[in-house]
Write a protein that binds this DNA or RNA. Structure first.
Length: 952
RNA sequence: GCCCGAGUGGCGAAAUUGGUAUACGCGCGAGACUUAAAAUUUCGUGGUCGUAAGACCGUGUGGGUUCGAUUCCCACCUCGGGCACCA
């Protein structure tokens, strides 16, 4: 018996597979296909660490299974090789980026190949290859021709360290995504791609794809679709008006001032009217200077300045409101102006409180027999509307509050409350009620909290439905001076002094709790929906249904806004695709003619970006100065390059036809291969690469250049592999585990199996080289088992083994589909453990086992398969089917419970009837003592599982 | 603050139309083989009490629904991820 030696078999089979091209996609565009995709790597100088291959191996297992299921499989790889690290390396060393890229990708290729990932290497692409980026440039020109690529002066996020403009997506907490440096704002002419034109479709079409729910939510979040109203507030004595965007048109009667973003162009146009212009100008200058981080810090105190002398008119009620400039209004969202409704918006509330601006409640919370409320309104009974009030009564010396405990109803407690008579105001009404019900007379202070709460309920004693509109009144007692309280009142309820911090638990009604929390200041603005009050003709309507009507009433219109901004597509860098446009004095921006593509990167002496923010290309005058393709006059080339998201936005299309010189891919190939059936990648690319590529794809679809509107049918994610301390693996932390070392000592099969066994595929897991031994042991067991089976030459297997084997086939078949690799492996381990012990295991059955384990440990499976006389690769064999008859158990363990506690077990045949099971249970000796002297109330029977005797 | 996910032995983790909690693996303990070690292999391995049979407790915490809850509901705590003045 020869021992398992991974070194002897892994290289051998890798060469054989490559020679026979068994993993290459077949060029015949016929039959069922499977296109599996992983995110192509950036070939960094550090090489692969053990975290990189996790997604490759996962998708490899799926691809291998698909091949065995008879699919024509496309599982490609390439290099996303434009990018900063290579360029920075070039700056430091002077070595050309092409050379570095070549070296790094050669190393990556070698490493990946050593893991036997079944990529089709004949379709390898490289984004930095001119034959590839010719088409990246070509697609960009299509955007340009359709007016979706435009150059504009914008405020961009600028990283002072990398000297590069960043898209919003690349700014994390105000810092550069790559280097962590705090970004600055800079004004610059930049090429933009109009992704916002596709915002709605990018959002809506998520319904048509099978993505992880988190991916969909994150994309939706990022796109930030929000439906609302655009409404104009006219400025008095002026032709001008302020257009605001709001999702809460229902609160417009409560709009007590208007806010403009500091960058809003209207501010300048109002200059002549503004009396405090100096102050305003200063504020604006300050706001512009602030960097992203300090300006958007959530806990930052709000600031602003009033435009004195400017007044706007609330179109709902005609009231004059003040106009302010404040940086909590953002210029690039909505209209850059906000109608402030402090009573119903947290931010406006904070601002209004600080600057003492009026706060007007226009939405009353509505309690409709909800939680902690009296009975539901009864249909058919009359509804009596009543004005009422609650009193929050503070003790004269202690930190206690007065509340009522109702005597006729259990667990009923409330604030002191009562009706308001006609002509009476709420404060006097409550003073009257309080003295009647509690006897207290010394009211030091009594005021209206200005918080109205509505409720609907059924009043038992009166037999009628009530609609109560309650005011919240606060009364502070000066002393305990008290009159006698009427006997009748005392029979109804008992007044109790409750400590402040116990009050919320003491009160049972949701509306009382709400008023109490408003009093405490726990609720600033009431931001939920409710019933309109103080809103003229709209009073009594619900905030949900009234939005459209109110918008029309004030002459506004319903609109949809997005958080998504257009994509900054320019980079002032060398190592990227040159933007193929020339600027002609006469003709403006003119595309480089298609036949001149690719527009290659010229050789430069220095890769250093300039401090002025121009790319190193601008220094090469012989390249920059050119002729206009249109008029042949003098022209200059664009010196900006594309961001590295460009090449990755369409690479999956190129894989279908990677050598095509006439098109980015032929229609025929695209039609057969796309969409990608299954795309696995990192969550970190959800709002960047994934969204960008969906955008490009939709654009190409509109040009009828791709056959589907979505590029990827299904999207899953893998978790990170963390270093042993639970930290991220990185060269700088010095905790990187190199797969080369693992392959050398344990073998590629062990590494593959271990990575898949570590834990759930989509979760982060901690690497442990110590635990790897388990996977190696499993492989050795399989190996020994193979040797044993071959020498024994059994014709049949024992029944138990057959059952376990077919169960494993079922489990593995199903689990691979849901990326449950760890549980699939577990079932194979169980199977092997039993096969080891088994007296008889047939060659035929063992070969079935080899087939299901083959996607996980391809070398060992192939070696044993061939030794058993097979001439063709196991990876081209047909995926086994389990036999449903063979997985049926004859017996099962019947669990017998008494009062839901397991007291006994019995091995019984599966054909057992309910009656028989009950008999077995009752007569079981272990059970007798538990039910002795008790009455059996109930017997619960769960087929093939348990009997539960409920006895007392 | 808001949204999403998670919390189970010493460790990685299984198990959900509600039905034996801890499969599988690592580690650990004891035995076999061996001159010895490694490798391999057999048995054991949630906690407490008990000589034992066994009993009780146990899936982040506190409640609830149920004959029965890791699974469903409510409240809370902790960790991870995303968003963050988006009107």
């Amino acid at each position: 018996m020869k021992n398992y030696d991974h070194k002897k078999i892994e290289g051998k089979w890798q060469k054989e597979w490559e020679k026979k091209k068994i993993y290459n996609a077949q060029n015949k565009l016929k039959g069922k296909k499977f296109y599996g995709l992983i995110e192509f790597p950036y070939p960094s100088g550090d090489g692969l660490h053990v975290g990189h291959p996790r997604p490759y191996i996962g998708m490899d297992i799926i691809s291998r299974k698909r091949r065995m299921e008879g699919y024509n499989v496309l599982y490609p790889i390439g290099w996303d090789a434009f990018g900063l690290p290579t360029e920075n390396y070039a700056i430091k060393t002077g070595i050309a980026p092409e050379k570095v890229t070549k070296k790094n990708s050669d190393n990556f290729r070698r490493q990946i190949k050593s893991l036997a990932v079944s990529f089709d290497w004949s379709r390898e692409v490289n984004t930095t290859d001119p034959a590839y980026y010719k088409w990246t440039q070509w697609i960009f020109l299509q955007f340009f021709k359709k007016g979706l690529a435009y150059k504009t002066k914008t405020v961009i996020n600028w990283c002072p360290k990398d000297k590069i403009g960043l898209a919003n997506e690349e700014v994390i907490n105000g810092c550069c995504e790559r280097c962590g440096t705090l970004t600055e704002k800079r004004e610059k002419e930049q090429w933009m791609l109009a992704i916002t034109k596709y915002a709605d479709r990018l959002d809506k079409d998520l319904d048509t794809v099978d993505y992880l729910p988190q991916v969909k939510t994150q994309q939706r979040n990022w796109i930030g679709k929000s439906e609302g109203s655009e409404i104009e507030f006219k400025i008095t004595d002026s032709e001008l008006g302020i257009k605001v965007f709001t999702t809460r048109a229902d609160t417009i009667f409560g709009a007590t001032y208007v806010i403009l973003a500091p960058e809003h162009t209207l501010v300048e146009s109002l200059k002549s009217k503004v009396k405090n212009w100096d102050e305003v100008e200063k504020y604006i200058a300050l706001a512009k200077k602030k960097d992203e981080l300090t300006r958007t810090a959530a806990d930052k105190e709000k600031t602003g300045v009033e435009l004195k002398g400017v007044e706007a008119i609330n179109p709902a009620n005609g009231e004059k409101v003040s106009v302010w400039v404040a940086d909590y209004a953002l210029v690039n969202y909505g209209t850059g102006a906000v109608m402030a409704v402090p009573a119903h918006d947290e931010r406006d509330f904070a601002f209004a409180t600080k600057y003492k601006l009026p706060i007007k409640q226009v939405i009353a919370p509505m309690f409709e027999s909800g939680e902690g409320h009296p009975d539901k309104p009864v249909a058919g009974k009359p509804v009596i509307e009543r004005d009422v009030a609650y009193a929050i009564i503070k003790h004269w010396s202690e930190d206690k509050y007065l509340a009522l405990k109702w005597k006729q109803v259990d667990h009923w407690t409330s604030l002191v409350m009562g009706g308001i008579d006609t002509g009476e105001d709420a404060v006097s009404a409550m003073k009257r009620e309080v003295s009647e019900e509690t006897g207290f007379t010394d009211f030091k202070k009594a005021y209206d909290l200005q918080f109205e709460v509505h409720s609907k309920f059924y009043q038992h004693q009166k037999g009628e439905n009530r609609y109560a509109k309650a005011q919240t009144i606060v009364i502070e007692l000066g002393s305990g001076a008290q009159n006698n309280v009427d006997e009748e009142e005392l029979k109804k309820h008992e007044p109790l002094w409750i400590e402040k911090n116990k009050m919320e638990d003491f009160l049972v009604h949701g509306n009382h709790k709400l008023s109490w929390n408003k009093y405490l200041g726990k609720i600033g603005a009431y931001t939920e929906g409710g019933v309109l009050i103080n809103s003229g003709q709209f009073n009594g309507l619900s905030s949900q249904e009234v939005k459209k009507n109110i918008t029309e009433f004030v002459g506004g219109k319903m609109v949809t806004k997005f958080k998504l901004r257009d994509w900054v597509f320019s980079r002032q860098r060398y190592w990227g695709e040159p933007i193929p446009l020339v600027n002609c004095e006469k003709c403006g921006w003119v595309p480089v003619p298609e036949k001149e593509l690719p527009l290659k990167l010229p050789k430069v002496k220095s890769y250093q970006p300039t401090d002025t923010g121009e790319s190193p290309l601008s220094a090469i005058t012989s390249w920059v100065n050119t002729k206009c393709p249109k008029c042949k006059g003098k022209a200059k080339r664009e010196t900006d390059t594309m961001p590295n998201w460009a090449g990755s936005s369409w690479y999956y299309l190129r894989y279908t036809d990677p050598k095509n010189k006439k098109e980015f891919a032929s229609k025929k190939n695209l039609k057969y291969w796309t969409p990608v059936d299954w795309y696995n990648g990192g969550m970190e690319h959800t709002t960047l690469h994934l969204l960008y590529s969906r955008f490009w794809h939709k654009f190409l679809y509109d040009l009828k250049l791709v056959p589907t509107s979505e590029p990827y049918k299904k999207r899953t994610s893998h978790g990170l592999i963390l270093a042993e301390g639970g930290e991220k693996m990185s060269k700088s932390r010095g905790n990187v585990v190199n797969p080369d070392d693992i392959v050398k000592t344990y073998g590629a099969d062990t590494l593959r199996l271990y990575e898949m066994f570590l834990g759930p595929f989509d979760q982060a897991v901690v690497w442990s080289t110590e635990s790897m031994i388990g996977s190696r042991r499993f492989i050795e067991k399989v190996w020994r088992l193979g040797e044993k089976v071959m020498s024994a030459k059994a014709k049949t297997s024992s029944k138990e083994i057959e059952r376990l084997l077919h169960k494993a086939i079922k489990k593995v078949t199903e689990d691979i589909e849901i990326m449950g690799f760890n549980t699939a492996i577990s079932s194979m381990m169980i199977c092997v453990n039993e096969m080891e012990k088994a007296e008889s295991l047939s060659v035929k059955d063992f070969k079935l086992f080899l087939q299901i384990v083959a996607p996980f440990i391809p070398h060992v499976a192939e070696e044993l398969w061939r030794e058993m006389g097979e001439k063709k690769s196991i990876h081209l064999s047909k995926w086994p089917k389990y036999d449903p008859k063979k997985i049926v158990d004859d017996t099962f363990t019947l669990v017998i419970q008494v009062n839901s506690k397991v007291r006994a077990e019995a091995t019984v045949p599966v054909s057992l009837s309910e009656k028989e099971a009950e008999e077995i249970a009752k007569n079981h000796p272990m059970i007798q003592s538990w039910i002795a002297g008790k009455t059996i109330r109930k017997i619960i029977y769960v087929k093939n599982k348990l009997v539960n005797i409920v006895a007392a």
